[in-house]
Design a protein around this nucleic acid. Structure first.
Length: 295
DNA sequence: ATGACGGATCTAATCCGA
């Protein structure tokens, strides 16, 4: 991995961090804008992918739960939106991840997690202004209902997946990296609408939140959203379809994350959670999270 | 904090999401 050449920030503290709910300011000049979004079927929701592009014009869009085999992935429609560089890894019915980019990508060979070829991780290197950034798009298993690995194989799979991630990032060499995705864990108290009521609910159990924090520590990752919007401010990226009025009840969780390696921390130039996307026509239950990185 | 919603699939009833 070639080391990136990054411009020096004027002052690390001067980065204009923003937490946007509805409108999205343009990315600062020269910034790389990366979006992550659990789209819950890319073929069904290609229209709101277009809407995100019009609203925020990301340079790179990382999708999870594309639910599309590669041979029927809407490559051409997405290329027409300006994303001609595409790294996709899909299967029938479930899972599926994609990196869609305006800039050239060097795609990595898929890495298998828990011995399964289940399309939960895709990685690519992006070239931009002479910098090489390694981007990882991850979809961690949801984990089913019962938070006990002995009786619930899906929860067991989730914990094993998290442990493999911890080991992987512990042994990774040093590089400029970004990890995004639907990690299906809301790690902190202010990442859920009720810490107390969700302690035994999959996505916020101590087993999972401890493992996610281990994964963070394993590579000295910076949780970009929490860097911009520190606790105890509540921050969510997902609201259940089952709530009659998601906005009024506001029973959300922060399941979607953007992490960066420490060398990129001074280059963080903005963070936007597009909460308004939860109200778009036929929405995903997740909303896009956007990071601006000044290079 | 369950399962009222929603998507995909062997287009009916089931699995899965979180």
């Amino acid at each position: 991995m070639q080391s990136p050449r990054l411009s020096s920030p004027t002052s690390p503290e001067a980065a204009p961090y923003r937490y946007a709910l509805r409108a999205v300011p343009s990315a600062p000049a020269g910034a790389l804008r990366i979006a992550t979004w659990n789209i819950n079927s890319v073929r069904l929701r290609i229209g709101i992918v277009r809407k995100l592009v019009r609203l925020a014009a990301p340079d790179v869009i990382c999708l999870q739960e594309t639910k599309s085999p590669d041979e029927v992935f809407p490559r051409e429609a997405i290329a027409k939106l300006g994303y001609e560089h595409q790294a996709i890894l899909g299967m029938k019915g479930y899972n599926g991840v994609a990196i869609l980019s305006r800039h050239k990508l060097h795609t990595w060979a898929p890495h298998q997690w828990c011995g399964k070829a289940d399309c939960r991780h895709i990685a690519a290197t992006i070239e931009r202004n002479g910098a090489a950034l390694e981007l990882h798009n991850v979809y961690i298993p949801a984990g089913g209902d019962i938070p006990d690995p002995k009786v619930n194989p899906r929860f067991d799979h989730k914990l094993r997946f998290l442990r493999e991630q911890v080991a992987f990032w512990k042994s990774a060499t040093k590089a400029s990296r970004i990890l995004v995705g639907d990690l299906n864990v809301a790690p902190y108290e202010s990442d859920v609408w009720s810490h107390k009521q969700l302690l035994k609910i999959v996505s916020h159990t101590p087993l999972e939140t401890d493992l996610l924090k281990e994964m963070l520590a394993a590579h000295d990752w910076v949780d970009a959203a929490r860097h911009v919007v520190p606790e105890p401010t509540r921050l969510y990226t997902w609201w259940s379809y089952r709530n009659q009025d998601w906005k009024a009840s506001d029973r959300g969780r922060r399941l979607d994350h953007i992490w960066v390696t420490p060398d990129l921390k001074p280059h963080l130039a903005g963070l936007h959670v597009i909460k308004g996307a939860r109200d778009w026509t036929q929405p995903s239950d997740h909303v896009p999270v956007i990071l601006d990185l000044k290079l």
